[in-house]
């Protein structure tokens, strides 16, 4: 039986504290890219009771995604925005989801993320990561960007950290493990990086600035 909204948020307040939960419920977070990083970040934030998520991805679920991304085999072929929305609402029926099935570019980034308090960069390609980080830092004066770089391969999960590069720019990952070096992407290590991104988002919303 699905819990009522009151039951759901009362359980979250019990875990997180009423003050923090109110901040989470009032927050809007944009997630740019819904692959291994983005789908896992979204699930962490939906479970934490974030009020609204803006999900941005142009792609569809592929069988090659299922080893690390939070989709079901039955969802292969669906737009990731729609598939993830379905899965997130199963977890948290009271979250607001805005699905944007578009390719993010320099031209539409500002419009897509303008409503967000924090933006999570969760793309696969290095140039896409750089594009969204540059756009958010250049075009906004107060928006925070959390990015993920360096989580490929089987190296130690302990190498993945969160760094504060400036007041509005946080970076998660080991900074060096490049998927283009042929080392693959493994669910566990990608999830560690995604959890770092989601965790610093929660800390920032609580008012904590240290990584």
């Amino acid at each position: 039986m699905v819990p009522t909204k009151e039951e759901f948020f009362s359980a979250l307040e019990f875990r997180h504290g009423r003050k923090n939960q109110r901040k989470f419920a009032d927050a809007t977070v944009a997630i740019c890219g819904l692959g291994g990083l983005g789908s896992n970040i979204a699930i962490c934030l939906a479970r934490a009771g974030i009020g609204k998520l803006i999900l941005i991805d142009f792609d569809v679920v592929d069988v090659s995604n299922l080893h690390r991304q939070q989709y079901m085999a039955s969802q292969v072929g669906m737009y990731k925005t729609e598939a993830l929305k379905e899965n997130l609402l199963e977890i948290n029926p009271y979250i607001t989801i805005e699905s944007c099935t578009v390719r993010m570019t320099e031209d539409n980034t500002v419009k897509l993320v303008s409503e967000a308090d924090v933006v999570c960069e969760a793309f696969d390609k290095a140039e896409c990561k750089a594009m969204v980080v540059n756009a958010v830092l250049t075009d906004f004066k107060d928006k925070i960007i959390v990015s993920g770089s360096g989580m490929a391969g089987f190296s130690s999960a302990n190498a993945i950290v969160t760094k504060k590069l400036s007041n509005r720019f946080y970076m998660c990952g080991d900074g060096v493990s490049d998927v283009n070096d042929g080392i693959g992407l493994i669910a566990s290590r990608v999830m560690v990086c995604a959890a770092h991104e989601a965790h610093i988002v929660l800390r920032l919303l609580m008012g904590e600035q240290t990584p």
């Binding site: 890219g33 692959g35 291994g36 990083l37 983005g38 969760a122 793309f123 696969d124 390609k125 290095a126 140039e127 990561k129 750089a130 980080v133 990015s147 993920g148 770089s149 360096g150 989580m151 490929a152 590069l165 400036s166 970076m171 990952g173 900074g175 060096v176 493990s177 490049d178 998927v179 283009n180 992407l185 990608v190």
Partner: peptide, 10 residues
């Protein structure tokens, strides 16, 4: 100066 160089994977 911080020059942040992103690597692929996500």
């Amino acid at each position: 100066l911080e020059v942040v160089s992103f690597v692929g994977g996500g």
